[in-house]
Amino acid sequence: MARLTGGIATSHVPAIGVAIDLGKTNEDYWKPLFAGYDFSKKWIKEEKPDVVILVYNDHASAFSLELIPTFAIGCAESFQPADEGWGHRKVPVVEGHPELAWHIAQSTILDEFDMTIINKMDVDHGLTVPLSLMFGEPEKWPCKIIPIAVNVVQYPPPTGNRCYNLGKAIRKAVESFDADLNVQIWGTGGMSHQLQGPRAGLINQEFDNQFLDRIVKDPEGQAKVPHIDYVREAGSEGIELVMWLIMRGALDKDVEEVYRFYHVPASNTAVGHLILKNKT
């Protein structure tokens, strides 16, 4: 059976992708940020996941206002990097794992999650920036990716509790898949940031650090936090943090914190990063 061995959380700031793509990673502004991922790059080379379930949100790239799925799972053979208004990112095509993705879709739907099944989709910085941060700039991504796109653009997003429970259902699905696979789940987005209006630039380091503590040690408590608290404390785009709860729900309640990194700023955003590992 497939094993869900660990989880990674990371911000997915588009400017990080731009910095990589334009070769700016050694500039003073960016150096400390990328240094924060040095350990992670080494760690994942040793872990060698076969498949990453990558939870992210689409930023008006694949989904316009014509159709807005709450939870969408990518079951295609591959996914192209999206043109977000400045051309496609020159990163490798994202290869899916249709067998496992369909299995998760079926298992979660029968567990009463109302998934949208996707067989054609472009993926934006929300998905490709985490890949770049963890894998650098390879010719081809070293593993298969199953995108799970969560609506956090159109209100209301799913509740924290719903996200946490979807994580649990994903774990159950993975562990009932009949193949010897090392599967990771990543939760992306956040941390505190606001991109819009006169309050743009809001950063709340205290909230972020408490969130990092709580998502590790008290995920059930964190799952109960309402949307308004994220908006008030972490900025209107800080709501992306609910997606980390999907990753967390897929892991053991008692989990090993392998690595933590926190940095301000990347463009408008506080960057947070965790590596968690199941003890079982």
Partner: peptide, 27 residues
Amino acid sequence: FQKLASLMTGVPEEEYRDMMLAGGRSP
């Protein structure tokens, strides 16, 4: 996005960038 933020906050781009480097807008 940072340029847009400077427009929306009415703060010159360099000043906005410095605010972010200093830890961002306080809650």
